[in-house]
Design a protein around this nucleic acid. Sequence first.
DNA 1: TTGTGAAATCCTAACGGTTAGGGCTACCTT
DNA 2: AAGGTAGCCCTAACCGTTAGGATTTCACAA
Lengths: 191, 191
Amino acid sequence: MIEPSGRRERKKAATRQKIADTALSLFLERGYDAVGIREVAAEADVAVTTVFAHFASKEALVFERDQDFEERLTRAVTGRPAHEPLIAALHREVRALVRHCTAEGSAPVRRMIEGSPALREYEESMGLRHAQALAAALAADPHLSRSTTACRATARFAIDAYALACRADDPGATVDEVFRMIEAAWEATAP
Amino acid sequence: MIEPSGRRERKKAATRQKIADTALSLFLERGYDAVGIREVAAEADVAVTTVFAHFASKEALVFERDQDFEERLTRAVTGRPAHEPLIAALHREVRALVRHCTAEGSAPVRRMIEGSPALREYEESMGLRHAQALAAALAADPHLSRSTTACRATARFAIDAYALACRADDPGATVDEVFRMIEAAWEATAP
DNA sequence: TTGTGAAATCCTAACGGTTAGGGCTACCTT
DNA sequence: AAGGTAGCCCTAACCGTTAGGATTTCACAA
C-alpha cells in the first residue's frame, strides 16, 4: 500500500498516454477497422503485449477517459449540495457530459464510434457498468429511501438519457426532455 | 421471389437447429469459454463456415430466439386491442417475456450468460437493437402523438425493465415496479 | 428426364485480437 | 550497494472470423 514516488509512475503514465494518442490519431486518420493493434504498437514504439498491459482491449483505446466518466457521475450524486434534489443534480451532470461529448472537437471521434459496430457495442456495455456504479451510489444515499429496483432503474434511465442525447439532433433539448420523464418516474417511487 | 417448396428449406432449418442444439448442450456441459467453434462444428458434423452461414457469431448461438423476441415486443404495440393503453400492453408483454426467461428450465442458461462477459455484452447490445425496433413501432403508432425522443426513451426504459427483472430476486415484482415508473414517465410526455 | 442455375455446404488458409511463457532492465526500497 | 519487482520486450500460439473457390444438392423448366 506504499505510494511509489515518481519516475516509474510517470514513465508508465507517459507510455499509456503515448499509446492512446498514437492509437486515436491512427484511427482517425485511416479508420478504426483499418488499423491493427500490431500497427498501433509499432507506431507507438512499444510491444503488443505492452498495449494490452495498459488497455484491456482495442476498443478501450478509444474510451481512454472511461474512468473519469464514472467518477463524475457518481460524484454528482454523492457530492451534491445537501439541499439539492437528486434528479436536478443528475440532470445537471448528464447535461455537462453530453455537452462534452458533442463539443466541436469531438465530432470526428463520434463519427468513428458510430461507424464501428464494435465500438458502439463497447460503449453500450460501458454504459452498463456506469449504471451499476450509479445505482450503487443511489442505494447508498441515506437521504433517498427508495427500493433497490427504483435505484437501478433510475440509474439506467439516466444512462439512457446520455446515450440518446449524444446521438440526437438537438442534444440539449433531448437531455431536458428525457429528464422530465425521469423526474416523473422518480417521483412515482416516493415512499 | 419464389417460395422454394420444401426439402431444401427443411434441410437448412434442420442444420441450423442441429448446430444450435449441439452448441447449447456443449456450452452447458463444459462452459461457454471452454468450447470452441471448431469443436461445435465437429460435434454437429458440419464445417466451421457452415456455422457462420447460420449464425453471425459465437454468441448468437446462445440467443437463437433473438428474432422472436423483437417481433413479440413490436407486435405487443402494433397489434394491441384498439382501446388498450400503450403502457399496459407493453407491461403485459414484458412480464410474459420475463416469465419466459426466468422459467424453471432457463436457469442454467441464465447462469451461463451471467458467467460470461462476452455473452452479457452481446445480450445488452441485442437489447439495444430491440429498443430501436420498439421505438420505431411507437413512433409509427397514429394514436400516440409523442416526440421521437419520448418514443426512444420509453423504448429503452422498457428494455431496461426486462434486463433488470431477468436478474432480480423477484422478477415479477421488479417488472411491476419499473413499469409504474415508466407509466409516470410516459404520462409526463402527454402533449 | 435431364439440363441448368442457384443455394447450401465444404475445405483450406489466412487475418487480427488476445494471451501465455519467459527473460531483461530500470527503478524503488532498505 | 543489493535485492526485489514493476514495466517492458519477444515469440509463439489460441481462437473467432472471413475470403476464396470447389462441390454437392435441390428446384424448376425445357
